[in-house]
Nucleic acid binder design. Structure first.
Length: 812
RNA sequence: GCGGGAGUGGCGGAAUUGGCAGACGCGCUAGCCUCAGGAGCUAGUCCGGGCAACCGGGUGGAGGUUCGAGUCCUCUCUUCCGCACCA
């Protein structure tokens, strides 16, 4: 018998798949399509088993769907722009392109050594002009539609990375990459108007039935819709008013003061009118500094100061003091709020601290008092009535407020997509004409990591002529957030080499949306919301029909080592190549799928991997034992009537396993139990092999089991399965194989073991025919000696029979 | 504080959705085979009692519904994750 040498099988079959381009596909309307995608990779250099788990999960699904007759698109690519490559350039002088392409080459090798069935012909890297020119093309379309716009805004500035960060990239007041405390800075920035789709993104999320509830909840919170009203409070003794946003307009009779965020536009105006402008502004500036950094670490107390001015509460007509408060957010609502200390805990804290008036206007039973004409109304009714009154008086309106803000995409960095815009002193902002795209990144020889965008230091890049007037103009020197790259790459895979358009709508119409998308939960908000946004943009450009890009989302759990996330700095990284050298890629693949359901976090164990290797070796040996006297199943049918009891039992196990594995993989998506079902089949096969006769019938029965096993195992352990499949005479390979068919008649039990309970306690098991009548079953159950022992001398009150499952006897 | 999960042997996890709790694997124990074994095979492995048949207990805790609860309901504890002064 041949020894099991998985490493040789890896080499042999990986070469075969590459030579035959086994996983390349084209649109074929005669076949149902399946688009299986794993989140593409940032080319950090080395993939560890945590990363690789995701690709294995996707590959199992892709290979399974192929066996089920689907035309499967399973591509891979590289999210290749980003800070680390540029930081490496600053540190060691290595050109970002060189290091990135080198990392891609290495990681691609790692994935190929795992036997992941990618259509490598569609591979893309976002740092190549063939790809990023379409970022620029799309940016121009969005500019034309008003979805990309420029404004001066306060941005999060990382003093170490010397760049602007999106709000989403600020974690606990610090830079998401380097952990430095983020500062505030005013800059001209490009934004994408994602807020135009806020309501739709929120509501459409309800229809994403195959997304994890957790992700949908996170997106809902992120979009943060709240219904309320805007109301104007006139400023006493001068023109103008303060507009506030509130969800509790019913409490407006209890609004005893008004607060401004420190960055509110009125702050500097009121400062000028105050006795101590300098002190006023310094105080406000101090609050702004506290803002993100301090607030999010939770240690900043509520603080504020009186501006010296009053506003008029438009419903009580009383003057209310205007304060500046550090806990009012400039970026939310109008940046000003009415304070109702009696009915808001935060306002109450503040009012107590500064001794401001507290007026109750809503009783515990939610009915208003002290509220003029609205007294006696319920809070709900009052909200509607007061909003309506405000509208009639022209001082307010109902307003839906979102937490979601427009997406700032400008980055003052080199290693990203150049924004295709030109600033002309005559014509203003002018897009680079489509036929001049791509605007390619110039080579830079020295990376300092200081100051403005590195591109600003390349005169040949910056100095251009205006496309409109032909006069001298200046090119935009910011690059795009890398999240732009990853927001539509899944469409590019459908038509990866198109040099006329981002993609042919017909090809995307065939392949998209993505049927199965898997990746880390860390992308639950940013990547997945931006992608949903881009799908809507493409939809509104008339390029795609659908609006939701991912039908089914799986968020895979992390792989821990010694209780921690794997990381180079912790030194707890498990390298897939080392494991493959020891046990072969199939054992690694199988282990990763067997250890736990894919969403769960798991702890890596070497012994678990060894167990999976042992299982594959067992499969190998038992298949080899039956290989010599194998008969070709394709030309012989099994005569069920001629089989021995042991043979019938073996077949029953085979078909029951087919049923379980099919349901586990396809319906329940529990790969781990699918594997354990196959392990049970192999255990049974060993008993059959050791104890049974070696008749030609036995041979057929064993072969049926083994061949079904090979096919079912092939998504998990494709190299071993291919080799065995070939050994069994299938020269055409598993690509031509089809999923085994479950035969209910063969799987049907000949007898059943039915548990019998007396007063809820298990007392016996009786063996009966599967189609036994209830009355007969009851008789047999009651006749069982142990049941007799527990019912003797007692009255049988009731007997419950659960068909084919259980008999429950109640006695008193 | 708000929201979403999760609590089952020594460990990872099963339990076909209200019907035999602990499948499968890891680990461990004993035996066989072996010059040897990080190989292979066989048996055992929830806890307590018993040679055994069997008996009692058991899914974080307390109640409840039911002939029957890991699963459903109420309360509670622990823990992980996300958001967090959003007016």
């Amino acid at each position: 018998m041949a020894e099991y040498h998985p490493q040789e099988l890896d080499k042999k079959w990986q070469a075969h798949w590459a030579n035959t381009q086994a996983f390349e596909v084209t649109e074929d309307p005669s076949k149902p399509k399946f688009y299986c995608l794993e989140m593409f990779a940032y080319p950090s250099g080395h993939a560890h088993v945590g990363h690789v788990r995701n690709y294995i999960i996707g590959d199992v699904v892709a290979r399974l769907k192929r066996l089920q007759g689907f035309n499967v698109l399973h591509p891979f690519g590289w999210d290749a722009f980003g800070l680390p490559a540029e930081n490496a350039a600053i540190k060691s002088g290595i050109d970002p392109e060189t290091s990135t392409l080198g990392n891609i080459a290495h990681m691609k090798g790692q994935l190929q050594r795992l036997g992941i069935s990618y259509a490598w012909g569609r591979e893309l890297a976002t740092c190549l002009p063939e790809y990023y020119r379409w970022n620029q093309w799309l940016f121009t379309r969005m500019f034309e539609k008003g979805l990309a716009y420029r404004r001066r805004s306060t941005v999060n500035w990382c003093p170490v990375d010397q760049t602007v960060l999106a709000n989403e990239q600020v974690v606990d007041g610090a830079c998401w990459r380097c952990g430095t405390k983020v500062e505030q800075k005013d800059l001209e920035q490009w934004f994408f108007r994602i807020t135009a789709y806020a309501d739709d993104l929120l509501h459409a999320a309800e229809g994403l039935s195959k997304w994890p509830e957790k992700v949908l909840t996170m997106q809902r919170n992120w979009i943060g819709r709240s219904e309320g009203a805007r109301v104007k409070f006139p400023i006493q003794g001068r023109d103008g008013s303060i507009e506030v946003f509130t969800t509790r307009i019913d409490t407006i009779f209890g609004a005893t003061f008004v607060m401004l965020a420190p960055e509110h536009a009125l702050v500097s105006v009121l400062a000028k009118e105050s006795a101590d402008e300098k002190g006023f502004l310094e105080q406000a500036q101090r609050y702004r500094g506290q803002d993100r950094a301090g607030r999010l670490t939770g240690e900043v107390a509520k603080e504020g100061f009186f501006t010296g001015r009053f506003a008029i509460n438009p419903f009580t007509n009383q003057p209310v003091p205007i304060w500046v408060a550090n806990y009012v957010l400039g970026e939310y609502g109008t940046g000003a709020v009415m304070a109702v200390p009696a009915h808001d805990e935060r306002d109450l804290d503040f009012a107590r601290k500064y001794d401001l008036p507290i007026v109750q206007v809503v009783r515990d039973d939610d009915v208003l008092f002290n509220s003029g004409a609205y007294s006696g109304l319920t809070a709900d009714a009052a909200r509607a009535a007061i909003t309506e009154a405000a509208e009639e008086r022209g001082i307010g309106e109902a307003k839906v407020q979102f937490r979601l803000k427009d997406w700032g995409i400008s980055r003052q960095r080199y290693w990203g997509t150049p924004i295709p815009m030109i600033h002309c002193p005559v014509d203003g902002v002018v897009p680079v004409p489509d036929d001049q795209l791509p605007v390619t990144l110039p080579k830079i020889t020295e990376f300092t990591g200081r100051g403005d965008s590195p591109l600003a230091s390349v005169p040949e890049f910056v100095n251009v002529t205006c496309p409109k007037c032909g006069g001298p103009a200046r090119r935009e020197t910011d690059t795009m957030d890398t999240f732009v790259d990853s927001s539509w790459y899944f469409y590019r895979f459908a038509d990866a080499h198109n040099d006329q358009m981002p993609f042919d709508p017909k090809k995307v119409a065939y392949w998209c949306p993505v049927d199965f998308y898997s990746g880390g939960v860390e992308h639950a908000i940013l990547h997945l919301i931006y992608s949903r946004f881009f799908a809507r943009v493409f939809h509104d450009l008339g390029m795609i029909e659908h609006t939701e890009p991912f039908t089914h989302l799986l968020t895979q759990g992390m792989v821990l080592k010694d209780g921690h996330v794997m990381s180079k700095s912790k030194g707890n990284v498990v390298d897939p190549d080392t494991m493959i050298e020891k046990f072969g890629s199939d054992a690694l693949r199988l282990y990763v799928m067997f250890v736990a359901p894919p969403e769960k976090e798991v702890e890596w164990t070497d012994t678990g991997l060894e167990g999976s290797f042992r299982f594959l070796a067992r499969v190998w040996r038992v298949a080899n034992q039956w290989q010599a006297d194998a008969v070709d199943l394709r030309h012989v049918t099994i005569d069920q009537g001629a089989l021995t009891a042991a043979e019938r039992s073996m077949r029953r196990k085979t078909h029951d396993t087919i049923r379980r594995v099919t349901a586990d993989i396809d319906v329940r998506q529990q790969m781990n139990t699918a594997v354990s079902a196959m392990m049970e089949l192999v255990n049974e096969l060993y008993l059959f092999t050791d104890k049974g006769e070696r008749s030609s019938q036995a041979s057929l029965v064993a072969r049926e089991a083994i061949e079904a096993l090979m096919v079912m195992l092939s998504p998990f352990a494709p190299h071993t399965a291919e080799e065995l499949w070939q050994m069994y005479g299938h020269s055409e390979g598993l690509a031509k194989a089809s999923w085994p068919v479950f035969d209910a008649a063969v799987a049907k039990a000949e007898e059943l073991e039915i548990p019998v309970q007396v007063n809820g306690k298990l007392r016996a098991r009786v063996v009966v025919a599967p189609d036994i009548a209830d009355a007969e079953l009851e008789k047999i159950a009651l006749a069982d000696p142990n049941v007799q022992a527990h019912t003797a001398g007692k009255t049988i009150k009731k007997v419950v029979i659960a068909k084919g499952r259980l008999v429950s006897v109640v006695v008193a």
